[in-house]
């Protein structure tokens, strides 16, 4: 059905529902003040940099290493969350067990808990005399102040993303495919690989990229556990922070710009995949 408002617009007549000018005006002016003007100032500031300056800064050894640390830890953490997220979504959708509601309600805790609080708690747990750290130390693994520690913190931050994007897809999915596969004698693993995985893949990938983008920029929970040693556990957001503390705005802006571009590229890849999946579903 053609909506009345849409129809009236095409005719160029007055809209039926009032408030267009007022709400649009407020929306655009607030958007301008909070989002657009600040972003413009970033662009203006970057335009002052010469390309050589920019390239010199972002290819500095310490900066490149910080990017590598951020990228690799965010990737591994998001991968762990992708696997655990699918398992958790599966358990929460397909099984009934006591305590299920509490488990389901807990998933969003990383969103609700301030990152700094999570950071110091995880650090203390994983130092060599912490509850988890002392166990790991016996096995010869050090967690706090290493890359493992960064991954640990990022896994915490990224927990909700994959679970919450896969859960609705699994809920909607009909059991009949799985039953048919079982009757036909397929192993559960084969059923998962051939039937379930292709169905949940777009949602899984969406959750993965959101978690990845979030982990790349994460600061609060990581600074405490990372130890922040240059060429070892220094992450890119921390590089920006330390450049700012030296009032070296040029360097901070250059590093930030590359991170912004990376985040946009990741999100664009995701939207292409989501678009293709939506097209295929039709």
């Amino acid at each position: 059905m053609v909506s009345l408002t849409g129809y009236m617009n095409k005719k160029g007549q007055k809209r039926v529902i009032p408030g267009f000018g007022l709400t649009l005006g407020i929306t655009i002016s607030m958007l301008g003040i909070i989002v657009l003007i600040p972003l413009c100032s970033l662009v203006i500031y970057t335009a002052k940099l010469s390309p050589k300056q920019f390239i010199d800064i972002i290819t500095g050894k310490r900066v490149l290493y910080a990017y590598w640390v951020s990228f690799s830890t965010a990737f591994v953490a998001s991968l762990i969350n992708a696997v655990m997220g699918v398992i958790m979504a599966w358990v929460l959708v397909k099984y009934e067990f006591p305590g299920k509601k509490i488990m389901d309600g807990m998933i969003e805790l990383p969103f609700a808990l301030p990152t700094a609080v999570a950071g110091i708690a995880l650090t203390h747990l994983t130092t060599t005399d912490g509850w988890i750290g002392s166990l790991a130390d016996k096995a010869g693994i050090k967690i706090a102040y290493t890359k493992t520690g960064i991954i640990f913190a990022l896994v915490f931050v990224g927990i909700p993303f994959v679970v919450r994007s896969v859960q609705p897809v699994l809920t909607k999915m009909d059991n009949s495919y799985e039953e048919a596969m079982e009757i036909l004698g397929a192993t559960p693993f084969r059923t998962f690989r051939k039937v379930i995985f292709p169905e949940i893949f777009p949602a899984l990938f969406g959750g993965f990229t959101m978690a990845f983008a979030r982990c790349l920029g994460e600061y609060g929970s990581v600074v405490f556990i990372a130890g922040n040693k240059p060429f070892e556990t220094e992450i890119a957001p921390l590089m920006i922070m330390s450049k700012l503390q030296e009032f070296d705005y040029t360097a901070a802006t250059s590093i930030a710009l590359l991170m912004l571009i990376t985040a946009f590229v990741i999100l664009m890849i995701n939207s292409v995949i989501q678009y293709k999946a939506a097209k295929k579903a039709k």
């Binding site: 958007l31 989002v35 657009l36 003007i37 600040p38 972003l39 100032s41 970033l42 500031y45 983008a213 790349l216 920029g217 994460e218 600061y219 609060g220 957001p237 920006i240 922070m241 700012l244 705005y249 901070a252 802006t253 930030a256 991170m259 912004l260 985040a263 946009f264 999100l267």
Partner: peptide, 20 residues
Amino acid sequence: LIDLPLTISPVIAGLVFLLT
């Protein structure tokens, strides 16, 4: 544009206001 702040690292958000 409304969703943009979700994808920006908090540190970069701070930096942007510092520059403004």
